[in-house]
Nucleic acid binder design. Structure first.
Lengths: 246, 246
DNA sequence: CAGATTTGTATATTGCTATAGACAACTATA
DNA sequence: TATAGTTGTCTATAGCAATATACAAATCTG
């Protein structure tokens, strides 16, 4: 196993690097069967730092709900593996996590009718300044926030979309109210960056965490663009699974 | 434009957060036509920090080759947009960046014959402990390192693969020497994490930078797995473009 | 219960991070 | 050439990050 050490004088505090590494290792499925972590002394030696530095990292993860420390006993893993989020022609949030999570839901944080920016207009193939509906949503699985999305719809065609979404809690169902029986994912651009303050709040991340950003375009049965969205996933809780059709 | 502010007491130094934000904005194509950045005072005000803190961030980006500071004149953008790296059934590195870069090449950092770990064995559908070839490669475009890959091949079938790769500099060409005329990308799992020390060195990143990690499996015309690889991309220089076949 | 192991708390010290103010060096321009 | 605007250097100070040492508190095991 490659033993990546922590980087000093990098602008990223050692305790944060260690916290990120531990969180990552847990997501990858490491840790013994009881969910017990190595002792603070063992971790300190492994990372080549003082015990208190490890403690600071552990405290951050306890705060986050990833670990649980018990005096005299040890430190234990509170949460487990990453969800695999499939991306393909039929990307659907609701079906995506089936079998991996017991309970999943989406809810709307807000919506607004706005004028299309050049970026949005180009994606939706409408005029710059044309009215669009912006939908801000948050998705959860097993009571853990998974993704935070901002979607744009052509307001001419989908005016009132947000009400159907609120009622049903499903994009697919809301589309049906507008006569869209089927839709496909045409393209997805994936990048990554540090979580912003909005992500920190809604995805319950701690500063310095990484988010995967997926810019996607959905099209209807006739190939017309219907939804342009930016979805941010917690990189510690989700991996994107790109599978090709046969 | 949302004005995400910097986070204090986060374990990530302000100068690093600012450097990351600026790098990110540049990658997204911001900046005026001359490539001139706002003044240090303007940036300090925008981020709500002292001018010296901005200077530290700029110095890091100058070191990285992203910015260029000229006394008395201003600070200028040295490098431009992100490469879009396509991921699809026919993912090929060599073709991927066509049209975006003038010059691109791959070279081998090293290779080794090893025993398959459970993870590798499962992917390649061989027995645990069976001999595999591990290939460490680095890809560049326009003299900038783009990706760092670790690939595994079934050594029974592809013994000597590394020599063909060295000769031709192309995976596709090396396959041909083993009678593999065509191959497909079956699946890709994408995640993100902070760059490790190996990434820092080969991808010429500064500590705290983010890498996109793509775990991919290639299959031959008969559907047999032939290559299992982990590729790490600099998140500042590359975005992964997932496009669906029609 | 006694001892070993492990997490929790306290204090002190050193170095890095961020701020503040002043001024030098360089460039462009009126 | 004088002035304004911009980056570069210097010094000083306060707070956070990391280390070091010691000991308390809780748990487990013989």
């Amino acid at each position: 196993m490659e033993q990546r050490r922590v980087e000093r004088r990098s602008g990223v505090a050692l305790w944060r690097q260690i916290a990120d590494r531990i969180r990552q290792d847990i997501s990858a499925g490491l840790g013994d069967e009881n969910g017990r972590m190595p002792t603070e002394m063992a971790l300190a030696e492994r990372f080549g730092v003082n015990r208190h530095t490890v403690r600071t990292a552990i405290q951050a993860l306890v705060q986050e709900g990833v670990l649980r420390a018990e005096q005299g006993r040890g430190t234990f893993i509170q949460r487990q593996r990453r969800f695999a989020y499939p991306i393909g022609p039929r990307t659907r949030l609701s079906e995506g996590l089936a079998g991996q999570a017991h309970e999943r839901r989406s809810h709307m944080l807000g919506h607004a009718y706005e004028q299309a920016t050049p970026e949005v207009a180009k994606a939706l193939e409408i005029d710059v300044g044309a009215p669009v509906l912006r939908l801000e949503t948050l998705s959860e699985a097993d009571a853990r926030p998974i993704s935070r999305a901002r979607s744009y719809f052509d307001a001419e065609r989908f005016r009132g979309f947000e009400r159907h979404f609120i009622e049903t809690g499903s994009i697919t169902a809301a589309y049906r109210a507008f006569g869209v029986e089927d839709y496909l994912r045409r393209s997805t651009a994936i990048s990554a960056r540090h979580a912003g303050s909005d992500d920190l709040e809604h995805l319950q991340l701690s500063p310095g965490a990484i988010v995967l950003v997926a810019l996607g375009l959905n099209i209807d049965g006739d190939g017309r663009p219907i939804q342009y969205s930016e979805t941010r996933f917690s990189a510690d809780r989700v991996e994107l699974q790109v599978s090709m059709p046969d």
